[in-house]
């Protein structure tokens, strides 16, 4: 019974995930694309919960679905209504056909590579304890085994924040030049 319920949740989340990803790629208005991406992130958080990643699911909703998407929506609202042409608007072109072909090639390559390197060994996962993926164990790992990754991540975030400020203030000075 539990098995059936988990399958149902998985199928629902996977369907929402793929449908909203396709919506992001195919909407002509970037605002709707950003809203579809929020649905994609939420259904991915459900999949993370099924995989035992409680903390990652919470971080996904807070950081991605919250902070990053608010930033996206602010910028889209700031830039105004600049709709892009839908990818199929100008009719089928050789570029689009080549792109779809390349994407299909990447997909088969990934699947064949994973199938060859794992050889059906993915069917039996290790048993996990109840605290798998809990904030406490993730925090302990971050501050013991992966301390360097933790510190480097904070430096990268600092550099990105400084870069964002520099780009913004540079744009403001350009705007001042244009006015004067």
């Amino acid at each position: 019974m539990a098995n059936f319920l988990v399958w149902c949740v998985w199928v629902g989340a996977a369907f929402c995930c793929l449908a909203s990803a396709l919506a992001v790629v195919s909407f002509s208005n970037p605002f709707f694309s950003a809203l579809a991406l929020i649905g994609n992130l939420a259904s991915l958080a459900v999949l993370y919960l099924l995989l035992g990643g409680e903390f990652v699911a919470a971080a996904q909703v807070l950081v991605y679905g919250g902070a990053v998407m608010v930033m996206f929506l602010f910028v889209i609202a700031y830039l105004g209504d600049k709709t892009d042409q839908a990818p199929w608007a100008s009719g089928p072109s050789w570029q689009a056909a080549a792109t779809v072909l390349a994407a299909a090639a990447i997909l088969t390559e990934i699947i064949v590579a994973v199938a060859l390197s794992t050889g059906g060994g993915l069917a039996h996962s290790r048993p996990i304890s109840g605290s798998f993926g809990s904030p406490a164990s993730i925090g302990r790992l971050f501050l013991t085994d992966h301390l360097i990754a933790f510190e480097v991540t904070s430096i990268v975030l600092l550099v990105a924040a400084v870069g964002g400020v520099v780009l913004g203030s540079h744009a403001r000075s350009l705007e001042g030049d244009a006015r004067s």
Binding site: L157, G164, A171
Partner: peptide
Amino acid sequence: ASEVVVGLG
């Protein structure tokens, strides 16, 4: 997140 900051900038 940092990629989005720089890209949106």
